[in-house]
Design a binder for these strands. Sequence first.
DNA 1: TCAACAATTCAAGAGATATTGAAATATGAT
DNA 2: ATCATATTTCAATATCTCTTGAATTGTTGA
Lengths: 108, 108
Amino acid sequence: MIETAALKMFAALSQETRLRIVRYLVECGTEGASAGDIGKTVGAISSRASFHLAALEQAGIVTSERQSRKIVYRANYEALGALVSFLLTDCCGRHPLVVACCDLGECC
Amino acid sequence: MIETAALKMFAALSQETRLRIVRYLVECGTEGASAGDIGKTVGAISSRASFHLAALEQAGIVTSERQSRKIVYRANYEALGALVSFLLTDCCGRHPLVVACCDLGECC
DNA sequence: TCAACAATTCAAGAGATATTGAAATATGAT
DNA sequence: ATCATATTTCAATATCTCTTGAATTGTTGA
Protein backbone atom coordinates (compact mmCIF):
# COMPACT_ATOMS: atom_id res chain seq x y z
CA MET A 1 0.00 0.00 0.00
CA ILE A 2 1.31 3.37 -1.11
CA GLU A 3 1.52 6.19 1.40
CA THR A 4 -0.95 8.47 -0.37
CA ALA A 5 -3.56 5.72 -0.31
CA ALA A 6 -3.04 5.22 3.41
CA LEU A 7 -3.32 8.97 4.02
CA LYS A 8 -6.65 9.04 2.21
CA MET A 9 -7.93 6.08 4.17
CA PHE A 10 -6.89 7.60 7.49
CA ALA A 11 -8.61 10.86 6.53
CA ALA A 12 -11.74 8.97 5.58
CA LEU A 13 -11.81 7.12 8.90
CA SER A 14 -11.23 10.27 10.95
CA GLN A 15 -14.83 11.42 10.67
CA GLU A 16 -17.49 10.19 13.05
CA THR A 17 -20.26 9.60 10.53
CA ARG A 18 -17.90 7.83 8.15
CA LEU A 19 -16.44 5.63 10.84
CA ARG A 20 -19.98 4.59 11.80
CA ILE A 21 -20.75 3.81 8.19
CA VAL A 22 -17.67 1.60 7.93
CA ARG A 23 -18.49 -0.27 11.09
CA TYR A 24 -22.05 -0.83 9.91
CA LEU A 25 -20.99 -2.02 6.47
CA VAL A 26 -18.43 -4.40 7.96
CA GLU A 27 -21.29 -5.93 9.94
CA CYS A 28 -23.46 -6.13 6.84
CA GLY A 29 -20.97 -8.35 5.09
CA THR A 30 -21.19 -9.27 1.41
CA GLU A 31 -24.86 -8.26 1.28
CA GLY A 32 -23.97 -4.66 1.87
CA ALA A 33 -26.57 -1.98 2.48
CA SER A 34 -28.31 0.73 0.49
CA ALA A 35 -27.47 4.41 0.86
CA GLY A 36 -30.84 5.08 2.44
CA ASP A 37 -30.47 2.23 4.88
CA ILE A 38 -27.01 3.44 5.83
CA GLY A 39 -28.19 7.01 6.27
CA LYS A 40 -30.98 5.94 8.63
CA THR A 41 -28.63 3.71 10.60
CA VAL A 42 -26.01 6.38 11.20
CA GLY A 43 -28.46 9.25 11.52
CA ALA A 44 -27.64 11.30 8.45
CA ILE A 45 -29.92 12.96 5.90
CA SER A 46 -29.58 11.73 2.34
CA SER A 47 -27.20 14.38 1.02
CA ARG A 48 -24.94 13.98 3.99
CA ALA A 49 -24.89 10.20 3.74
CA SER A 50 -24.17 10.50 0.05
CA PHE A 51 -21.33 12.93 0.69
CA HIS A 52 -19.65 10.63 3.18
CA LEU A 53 -20.25 7.49 1.14
CA ALA A 54 -18.58 9.20 -1.81
CA ALA A 55 -15.61 10.07 0.40
CA LEU A 56 -15.32 6.47 1.58
CA GLU A 57 -15.53 5.16 -1.96
CA GLN A 58 -12.93 7.70 -3.08
CA ALA A 59 -10.64 6.37 -0.38
CA GLY A 60 -11.25 2.81 -1.52
CA ILE A 61 -12.86 1.73 1.74
CA VAL A 62 -16.23 0.88 0.25
CA THR A 63 -17.57 -0.13 -3.14
CA SER A 64 -20.91 0.71 -4.69
CA GLU A 65 -23.21 -1.06 -7.09
CA ARG A 66 -26.58 0.00 -8.43
CA GLN A 67 -29.36 -2.50 -7.79
CA SER A 68 -32.45 -1.18 -9.53
CA ARG A 69 -33.49 1.91 -7.62
CA LYS A 70 -31.09 1.47 -4.76
CA ILE A 71 -27.33 1.78 -4.65
CA VAL A 72 -25.74 -0.90 -2.54
CA TYR A 73 -22.54 -0.18 -0.67
CA ARG A 74 -20.17 -2.81 0.66
CA ALA A 75 -17.08 -2.73 2.84
CA ASN A 76 -13.85 -3.35 0.97
CA TYR A 77 -12.24 -5.88 3.27
CA GLU A 78 -9.08 -6.13 1.21
CA ALA A 79 -8.49 -2.40 1.50
CA LEU A 80 -9.13 -2.45 5.23
CA GLY A 81 -6.73 -5.36 5.60
CA ALA A 82 -4.13 -3.48 3.62
CA LEU A 83 -4.52 -0.51 5.93
CA VAL A 84 -4.10 -2.65 9.05
CA SER A 85 -1.01 -4.09 7.42
CA PHE A 86 0.31 -0.64 6.56
CA LEU A 87 -0.21 0.63 10.08
CA LEU A 88 1.29 -2.43 11.71
CA THR A 89 4.18 -3.05 9.35
CA ASP A 90 5.07 0.14 7.45
CA CYS A 91 4.30 2.58 10.26
CA CYS A 92 5.14 0.56 13.33
CA GLY A 93 7.70 -1.90 11.96
CA ARG A 94 5.82 -4.67 13.78
CA HIS A 95 7.39 -3.37 16.94
CA PRO A 96 6.96 -5.89 19.79
CA LEU A 97 5.11 -3.38 21.96
CA VAL A 98 2.63 -2.66 19.21
CA VAL A 99 2.08 -6.33 18.47
CA ALA A 100 1.58 -7.02 22.16
CA CYS A 101 -0.85 -4.17 22.62
CA CYS A 102 -3.10 -5.23 19.80
CA ASP A 103 -3.47 -8.80 20.98
CA LEU A 104 -2.01 -10.43 17.94
CA GLY A 105 -0.55 -13.40 19.73
CA GLU A 106 2.79 -14.95 18.97
CA CYS A 107 2.59 -15.35 15.23
CA CYS A 108 3.35 -11.69 14.53
CA MET B 1 -10.04 2.22 22.97
CA ILE B 2 -12.89 4.69 22.85
CA GLU B 3 -14.17 5.86 19.48
CA THR B 4 -13.28 9.52 19.99
CA ALA B 5 -9.67 8.58 20.72
CA ALA B 6 -9.52 6.52 17.55
CA LEU B 7 -11.01 9.38 15.52
CA LYS B 8 -8.32 11.73 16.82
CA MET B 9 -5.58 9.26 16.02
CA PHE B 10 -6.87 8.67 12.49
CA ALA B 11 -7.04 12.43 11.96
CA ALA B 12 -3.51 12.82 13.23
CA LEU B 13 -2.23 10.11 10.87
CA SER B 14 -4.02 11.55 7.85
CA GLN B 15 -1.45 14.29 7.30
CA GLU B 16 1.70 13.65 5.31
CA THR B 17 4.14 15.47 7.58
CA ARG B 18 2.68 13.88 10.69
CA LEU B 19 2.73 10.39 9.20
CA ARG B 20 6.41 10.91 8.35
CA ILE B 21 7.09 12.03 11.88
CA VAL B 22 5.43 8.93 13.29
CA ARG B 23 7.37 6.61 11.02
CA TYR B 24 10.61 8.32 11.94
CA LEU B 25 9.90 8.19 15.68
CA VAL B 26 8.96 4.52 15.49
CA GLU B 27 12.39 3.92 13.96
CA CYS B 28 14.06 5.98 16.66
CA GLY B 29 12.76 3.69 19.37
CA THR B 30 13.03 4.49 23.06
CA GLU B 31 15.75 7.08 22.44
CA GLY B 32 13.31 9.28 20.60
CA ALA B 33 14.36 12.43 18.74
CA SER B 34 14.38 16.16 19.36
CA ALA B 35 11.93 18.51 17.69
CA GLY B 36 14.71 20.06 15.63
CA ASP B 37 15.99 16.68 14.52
CA ILE B 38 12.49 15.63 13.55
CA GLY B 39 11.86 18.84 11.65
CA LYS B 40 15.03 18.41 9.60
CA THR B 41 14.26 14.77 8.90
CA VAL B 42 10.76 15.39 7.60
CA GLY B 43 11.57 18.72 5.94
CA ALA B 44 9.56 21.11 8.06
CA ILE B 45 10.52 24.50 9.51
CA SER B 46 10.42 24.72 13.29
CA SER B 47 6.97 26.22 13.73
CA ARG B 48 5.48 23.68 11.38
CA ALA B 49 7.20 20.76 13.07
CA SER B 50 6.06 22.08 16.44
CA PHE B 51 2.49 22.42 15.22
CA HIS B 52 2.36 18.84 13.98
CA LEU B 53 4.17 17.42 16.99
CA ALA B 54 1.60 19.11 19.22
CA ALA B 55 -1.17 17.53 17.17
CA LEU B 56 0.42 14.10 17.48
CA GLU B 57 0.86 14.52 21.22
CA GLN B 58 -2.72 15.71 21.53
CA ALA B 59 -3.83 12.53 19.80
CA GLY B 60 -1.70 10.45 22.15
CA ILE B 61 0.54 9.10 19.41
CA VAL B 62 3.75 10.61 20.75
CA THR B 63 5.05 11.75 24.12
CA SER B 64 7.41 14.60 24.89
CA GLU B 65 10.02 15.20 27.53
CA ARG B 66 12.31 18.16 28.01
CA GLN B 67 16.01 17.27 28.11
CA SER B 68 17.90 20.46 28.87
CA ARG B 69 17.47 22.67 25.83
CA LYS B 70 15.89 20.06 23.62
CA ILE B 71 12.49 18.47 23.78
CA VAL B 72 12.60 14.79 23.02
CA TYR B 73 9.66 13.14 21.36
CA ARG B 74 8.97 9.41 21.38
CA ALA B 75 6.47 7.16 19.67
CA ASN B 76 3.75 5.85 21.95
CA TYR B 77 3.78 2.19 20.98
CA GLU B 78 0.94 1.29 23.32
CA ALA B 79 -1.32 3.85 21.67
CA LEU B 80 -0.35 2.68 18.20
CA GLY B 81 -1.02 -0.91 19.22
CA ALA B 82 -4.40 0.08 20.57
CA LEU B 83 -5.23 1.75 17.27
CA VAL B 84 -4.26 -1.34 15.27
CA SER B 85 -6.44 -3.34 17.63
CA PHE B 86 -9.33 -0.91 17.23
CA LEU B 87 -9.12 -1.02 13.47
CA LEU B 88 -8.79 -4.78 13.31
CA THR B 89 -11.28 -5.74 15.99
CA ASP B 90 -13.77 -2.91 16.60
CA CYS B 91 -13.97 -1.69 13.01
CA CYS B 92 -13.42 -4.88 11.04
CA GLY B 93 -14.62 -7.50 13.53
CA ARG B 94 -11.48 -9.48 12.73
CA HIS B 95 -13.15 -10.44 9.49
CA PRO B 96 -11.27 -13.34 7.81
CA LEU B 97 -10.64 -11.31 4.67
CA VAL B 98 -9.09 -8.49 6.65
CA VAL B 99 -6.94 -10.84 8.69
CA ALA B 100 -5.81 -12.59 5.52
CA CYS B 101 -5.00 -9.35 3.72
CA CYS B 102 -2.81 -8.00 6.47
CA ASP B 103 -0.65 -11.11 6.75
CA LEU B 104 -1.47 -11.92 10.32
CA GLY B 105 -1.17 -15.68 9.98
CA GLU B 106 -3.48 -18.18 11.64
CA CYS B 107 -3.53 -16.92 15.21
CA CYS B 108 -5.93 -14.11 14.47
C1' DT C 1 -46.45 9.39 -19.71
C1' DC C 2 -46.69 10.44 -14.92
C1' DA C 3 -46.08 9.90 -10.14
C1' DA C 4 -43.08 7.80 -6.49
C1' DC C 5 -38.99 6.57 -4.81
C1' DA C 6 -33.81 6.48 -4.26
C1' DA C 7 -29.87 8.74 -4.51
C1' DT C 8 -26.65 12.36 -6.06
C1' DT C 9 -25.24 17.05 -7.11
C1' DC C 10 -25.03 21.81 -6.21
C1' DA C 11 -24.50 26.36 -3.85
C1' DA C 12 -23.83 28.72 0.29
C1' DG C 13 -22.18 29.26 4.76
C1' DA C 14 -19.75 27.86 8.99
C1' DG C 15 -15.98 25.91 10.90
C1' DA C 16 -11.58 23.48 11.08
C1' DT C 17 -6.80 22.86 9.45
C1' DA C 18 -2.21 23.97 7.54
C1' DT C 19 1.46 27.22 6.35
C1' DT C 20 4.53 31.04 7.07
C1' DG C 21 7.44 34.42 9.38
C1' DA C 22 7.91 37.07 13.43
C1' DA C 23 7.86 37.33 18.30
C1' DA C 24 8.14 35.11 22.73
C1' DT C 25 9.75 31.61 26.10
C1' DA C 26 13.06 28.47 28.14
C1' DT C 27 17.65 26.60 28.78
C1' DG C 28 22.59 26.46 28.85
C1' DA C 29 27.24 28.46 28.06
C1' DT C 30 30.62 32.39 28.25
C1' DA D 1 24.16 39.59 32.63
C1' DT D 2 24.47 38.40 27.92
C1' DC D 3 24.29 35.62 24.05
C1' DA D 4 23.18 31.56 21.33
C1' DT D 5 20.36 27.62 20.88
C1' DA D 6 15.91 25.08 20.93
C1' DT D 7 11.32 25.27 20.69
C1' DT D 8 6.80 27.14 21.03
C1' DT D 9 3.26 30.62 20.35
C1' DC D 10 0.94 33.95 17.68
C1' DA D 11 -1.39 36.40 13.82
C1' DA D 12 -2.64 36.34 9.21
C1' DT D 13 -3.88 33.93 5.27
C1' DA D 14 -5.27 30.27 2.35
C1' DT D 15 -7.41 26.10 1.77
C1' DC D 16 -10.10 22.25 2.83
C1' DT D 17 -14.13 20.00 5.05
C1' DC D 18 -18.78 19.50 6.72
C1' DT D 19 -23.66 20.54 6.80
C1' DT D 20 -28.05 21.85 4.99
C1' DG D 21 -31.89 22.37 1.81
C1' DA D 22 -33.10 22.69 -2.88
C1' DA D 23 -32.67 21.05 -7.38
C1' DT D 24 -31.45 17.18 -10.41
C1' DT D 25 -30.80 12.47 -12.16
C1' DG D 26 -32.12 7.79 -12.57
C1' DT D 27 -35.39 3.86 -11.93
C1' DT D 28 -39.69 1.50 -11.32
C1' DG D 29 -44.58 0.74 -11.46
C1' DA D 30 -49.49 2.46 -12.41
